[in-house]
Amino acid sequence: MNSIKKESPAIIIDRFFQRLAIGMFILGLMYAISAANYVVEGDLKQTLSLIKRGLSFAVIIIVLPQLWKLMRLSGSDRAKCFQPDSYIVEMYKHASTMAFALTFVALIILNELSQGYFTAMPTAFFFDTALWLTVDIFALTFFISTLASDGDEMDMEDEA
């Protein structure tokens, strides 16, 4: 009996979006490290660079296998599952809206900080901070929206 179950196109696409969100979260951390590099000095700066390099490998390891599986799907399978009205796409839209709105708030705060506290910081610091907040708010909103219990049979099997 063949115990290895073939993954359906729907599952491959589900997992691709989840991995993509994880990848985006890590990308956000990389921006945070880039921003932190302007604040710290010495050994810590080197350590942060190493961590950033490790995180970039992690992004590749997490996203690439699932992207490969996605690319191997036939065109019709892929098109069939990328429905503009699927739950995952809806959650992506929700996360995008949340990230867009909160980025404005973050930009206003950063603008105030740039005039008061961080006057010596280069522009790149503020760009990295804004990108960190945007990307991580998106990823976290997506996780929070999708991880809640929803009667998913696979989740129930996992819990059993």
Binding site: A10, I11, Q83, S86, I88, E153
Partner: peptide, 28 residues
């Protein structure tokens, strides 16, 4: 849920969230 999702071309998560009322499906 997975078989139904495959049959109509949506993800399993779409079916499970419709079932529990968390997601209102499109007319299509």
């Amino acid at each position: 849920q997975e078989e139904l999702a495959d049959a109509i071309g949506v993800t399993r998560k779409t079916i499970s969230t419709i079932e529990v009322g968390r997601f209102v499906p499109s007319t299509i």
